[in-house]
């Protein structure tokens, strides 16, 4: 009987939310274009031949939230900035302690960053990617050490936040953020 209930839960109970308007889709596109455009431009024009980077893969995921689902609690400034920076620190720490066992470093980095984001009420899904990139991101990322938490992660997230504030408040029907702290 318990087993039946267990499998019963896998059927789902509700329907998916409605599709957004065309206007919402266009604004999402514009926000993401400028947000990612800005950090990518800095990365490729200013940091190309340095040891630094300005863009990491997890920013693509953040763009989904902060330009495409701007009402989501996961997309708010507290979560964006806090989630990225905490996860970056955790990721770097895990790499430094467990780099003999990359699989273990990866798993601990992501799992711990999720737990820590929960505890600090900064859950931001791309944070998990930020932690993972700190471990699996290669030589250039590893060489940054804890600087990774500031450049690219902290500064990049802040730039994207600035773009979100500018773009998401242009339309009368949109406002961002829902809350700061």
């Amino acid at each position: 009987m318990v087993l039946k209930e267990y499998f019963e839960k896998m059927k789902g109970t509700t329907k998916s939310p409605p599709m957004v308007s065309l206007e919402e889709i266009i604004w999402s596109w514009i926000g993401a274009f400028f947000g990612i455009g800005m950090v990518a431009y800095l990365n490729y024009s200013r940091f190309e031949h340095t040891d630094l980077v300005m863009i990491v893969g997890s920013f693509g995921a953040s763009a989904v939230l902060i330009y495409g689902a701007i009402k989501s609690p996961l997309a708010q400034p507290r979560n964006l900035i806090g989630g990225h920076i905490f996860s970056a620190i955790i990721g770097v720490t895990c790499y430094q302690y467990f780099n003999q066992h990359m699989w273990l470093a990866s798993a601990i980095a992501v799992a711990t960053s999720i737990a820590f984001m929960h505890v600090t009420k900064t859950l931001h899904p791309p944070g998990g990617a930020t932690a993972l990139i700190a471990v699996i991101g290669g030589e250039k990322i590893h060489a940054l050490g804890y600087l990774y938490a500031i450049i690219p992660v902290g500064v990049g997230a802040t730039i994207m936040l600035a773009i979100a504030l500018l773009v998401n408040n242009i339309s009368q029907k949109r406002k961002y953020p829902e809350f700061w702290i």
Binding site: P17, S21, E24, A69, K71, A75, K173
Partner: peptide, 9 residues
């Protein structure tokens, strides 16, 4: 307007 990050349920 906008994407609500919650299911009807």
């Amino acid at each position: 307007p906008g994407y609500l990050d919650i299911t009807p349920g």
